[in-house]
Design a protein around this nucleic acid. Structure first.
Length: 431
DNA sequence: TCTGGGGTCCTAGGACCC
DNA sequence: TCTGGGGTCCTAGGACCC
């Protein structure tokens, strides 16, 4: 979708931290970070935290001292809250265009072709309505290609005098060139930390340098992805967004453990748990998996531990969305790769070869649902499990194999309430 | 002591086919 | 000294994104 005409990219400012501030206004103006699972590292930071020199992805233990010395506040990531706030934000933004593409939890593209109006003013309207209805601050970038819209958004965010909206479609060529000369090549969407130094080595330092480079030559030297980025920077659209984003091509559930796992018993529990979660996501998108991958590994950061990392893919005879079937396959895979006497730091499962549930390839040998197998009963059981877990919270009903103690589960010592999704957590304001 | 999780796309190379 | 050529499919790994 979104093939031509102006595109807006709307993106929440430090989304996770802003969500927390909505429900704890006292955090306004203070340095605040949101921590990844296991309270491992920083995944969102406010301007005040950034000013303290805190980097994206920085390990928490390295900056912990700033709590005392600089009044830093750190909270465990509360994805239940952020997901719900995201849905609210997206539905407000959807009121502004029939063409919306949700790109991630905190940003979406809007198609604005045919809009005969001042787009900068329109961007301001979007910002103020999202702020009023959801409480989240946003920035808006407008341009003729996705890559330029990303660039415009970054400018709107970084430079206060734009007041949160930057529209490149009305910018004179000379001014645009000047702007692009001020942006490092590594900050261009699609140029990551591997590519950036290589480009700089051949004299391409800024977004403008990249826009003026030869897409054919660089395409050959690096990749077609980069040549598309160049075209997009020049204002020629060539990156397509898929209309159907809801149906994933693979589903992963993995976690770092709160404490090292050494026993097969505990590892089996975690694998059943991860499979359970993946299978629920699979059913929610009405798909089945043709294969499941299991992976386990020790910590890459602990020099004292002997390193070990392994993965294996187990093919299913018939594609399935049944938690029991998938868990059995995952445990078979685990048996093949598990080695005793290692301190495992992380494990996960990945559902692969996904296909819509109504497309069924019958098994050549053996029973199948169409031939009077057990599938129907299993499907009803899964549906009942999903319904119960939706109503009473995830984990209300699960396989016994997932264990009840879950000593390996992650640390979340600074978790806030899911203010918008649980009755008992809804904030009550006393006058 | 303590370093996240979930995705997509592209490419190179091997297996296999005629 | 001699060793085909062209195609497809699959997988692992790399790069990128948020």
């Amino acid at each position: 979708m979104i093939v031509s005409g102006p595109i807006a990219l709307i993106d929440a400012n430090c989304m996770y931290c802003s969500c927390e501030r909505v429900f704890r206004p006292s955090l306004e103006g203070r340095p605040l970070v949101s921590l990844s699972n296991n309270d491992g590292c920083v995944i969102s930071r406010t301007a005040e935290a950034k000013a303290l020199g805190i980097k994206m992805g920085q390990p928490w233990f390295q900056i912990r001292h700033l709590e005392e010395s600089a009044g830093l506040v750190a909270l465990s990531a509360n994805f239940e809250l952020y997901g719900d706030m995201s849905a609210r934000m997206m539905s407000v933004i959807a009121q502004f265009s029939p063409e919306q593409y949700i790109y991630s939890i905190d940003e979406c593209f809007l198609g604005l072709s045919g809009f005969k109006r001042d787009l900068t003013a329109y961007g301001q309207e979007i910002r103020s309505r999202v702020l009023q209805h959801v409480g989240l601050p946003t920035c808006v970038g407008i341009a003729d290609t996705l890559t330029r819209a990303k660039l415009a958004n970054a400018v709107a965010k970084a430079r206060p005098h734009w007041n949160g909206v930057c529209d490149l479609t009305v910018m004179p060529r000379g001014a645009l060139a000047t702007l692009m000369r001020e942006i490092e090549v590594g900050d261009v969407w699609g140029v990551g930390r591997r590519l950036a130094p290589q480009l700089k080595a051949i004299g391409i330092e800024t977004a403008l340098d990249l826009a003026r480079a030869d897409p054919v030559v660089l395409g050959r030297q690096f990749s077609v992805v980069l040549s598309r980025t160049i075209q997009e920077l020049r204002g020629i659209p060539c990156i397509e967004l898929e209309a159907d984003t809801r149906r994933r091509k693979q589903i992963v559930t993995s976690r770092s453990f709160g404490q090292p796992v050494t026993s097969l018993e505990e590892m089996r529990e975690s694998i059943v748990e991860f499979t359970t979660r993946s299978a629920a996501k699979l059913r929610a998108q009405a798909s089945r998996a043709g294969a499941i991958q299991v992976f386990i590994r020790t910590s890459p950061f602990r020099a004292k531990d002997r390193p070990y990392s392994a993965a294996t893919v187990v093919q299913l005879v018939t594609p399935s969305a049944d938690t029991k079937t998938l868990a059995a396959a995952a445990l078979r895979g685990l048996r093949g790769i598990f080695r005793p006497d290692y301190r495992y730091a992380k494990a996960g499962v990945m559902l692969l070869d996904l296909r819509p549930e109504h497309v069924e390839q019958l098994e050549l040998f053996g029973p199948s649902s169409a031939l009077g197998g057990n599938e129907d009963k299993g499907e009803r059981l899964m549906k009942a499990m999903d319904d119960l877990n939706l109503r009473f919270g995830r984990g209300a009903v699960k396989l016994a194999g997932a264990g009840t103690k879950q000593a390996w589960s992650m640390k979340q010592e600074r978790l806030t309430q899911p203010y918008t999704t649980r009755w008992e957590s809804i904030p009550i304001v006393r006058a």
